[in-house]
């Protein structure tokens, strides 16, 4: 176990969750893991069980069956709940509905206050956290004066101040405009690279999933597809069946191949498509 824990931040085994009085399982026998330092995207249409899964990672929900270990801690153990939530921080969808305090820095301090951290240490940690998300100059501002992207960065800072091993973003970009989405994605990518924090993003934006190390597609509470973004998105037909899009360039590659043009199927970005076109014309 010790060894496993070193390389995996979250391990889910036959994880199942049923909402009270629901006929079907919202999450149905999911086995997966989040590795140390990994950037994982969980995709799926609305109602596919992806958000429920996220809430099982944070002990907000307790498994109906199966187990999930967060940094080696079993979420079914009541005594470990607060440890687990400190290890695996969560950012939610609606930026307005997760900020508690009336001043930015007070909100960042919220989790630390709950955990009884000394005031001096809180000061140090919130300053660091606000710096890490580039929000230092908004420390004294009222949250409702901020843009959506800024609010979400405050929420990330609040999680970051707890020094988590995993950050889970539960559709945290869904209500943002493109620049807000970009702000949030840049922030979590930087934290992932520089601080080595594992990131789990729950999303239905393909462009965001394309930047992940690994992608899991959920459908009906089960894992329908998994692999690197390339491996997943190349299966254009299957992805569409699951109610999702593919990145526009992957779609273009798919259509070109259907018309007999021999481009690589796993093109994700514009630059890769340019490369493919150059390769085509030089081989002609």
């Amino acid at each position: 176990m010790q060894n496993k824990q070193d390389e995996n931040r979250i391990i889910a085994s036959s994880l199942t969750y049923t909402y009270p009085e629901a006929a079907k399982n919202a999450v149905d026998g999911v086995t997966m893991r989040v590795k140390k330092g990994e950037f994982l995207a969980i995709l799926g249409h609305n109602g596919s069980g992806k958000s429920t899964l996220a809430k099982l990672f944070n002990a907000l929900y307790v498994p109906s069956a199966g187990t999930v270990w967060v940094c080696g801690l079993d979420t079914r153990d009541d005594d470990l709940v607060f440890d687990i939530r400190q290890h695996a921080g969560m950012v939610f969808q609606n930026p307005d509905n997760q900020i508690v305090a009336t001043v930015v820095e007070e909100d960042v301090a919220f989790g630390l206050e709950n955990n009884g951290v000394e005031p001096k240490e809180i000061r140090v940690r919130i300053d660091e956290a606000l710096k890490a998300v580039n929000m230092t100059k908004y420390a004294k501002k009222a949250p409702h004066m901020l843009s959506g992207g800024q609010k979400q960065r405050v929420a990330i800072a609040g999680v970051l101040a707890m020094k988590p091993d995993v950050i889970i973003l539960d559709e945290s970009t869904a209500m943002l405009d493109p620049s807000g989405r970009q702000e949030v994605m840049n922030t979590v990518h930087r934290l992932n690279k520089e601080e080595g924090i594992s990131v789990v993003i729950i999303t239905h934006y393909m462009a965001e999933a394309a930047t992940a190390d690994y992608v899991i597609v959920m459908d009906g509470g089960k894992i329908a597809m998994s692999g690197t973004p390339r491996e997943v998105f190349t299966q254009v037909q299957r992805v569409r069946e699951l109610g999702l899009d593919v990145p526009p360039m992957t779609d273009l590659a798919y259509m070109l191949r259907k018309n007999g043009v021999n481009v690589r199927a796993d093109v994700l970005t514009v630059d890769e498509m340019v490369e493919e076109v150059c390769r085509l014309s030089s081989s002609n």
Binding site: P248, L252, L256, N259, G260, V261, S281, N284
Partner: peptide, 19 residues
């Protein structure tokens, strides 16, 4: 996307079958 696809097909020396 369909327009640019037709252009790439020209580059690849193919005619669009049903773009």
């Amino acid at each position: 996307t369909e327009e640019i696809m037709a252009e790439i097909m020209k580059i690849a020396g193919k005619e669009a079958q049903h773009a």
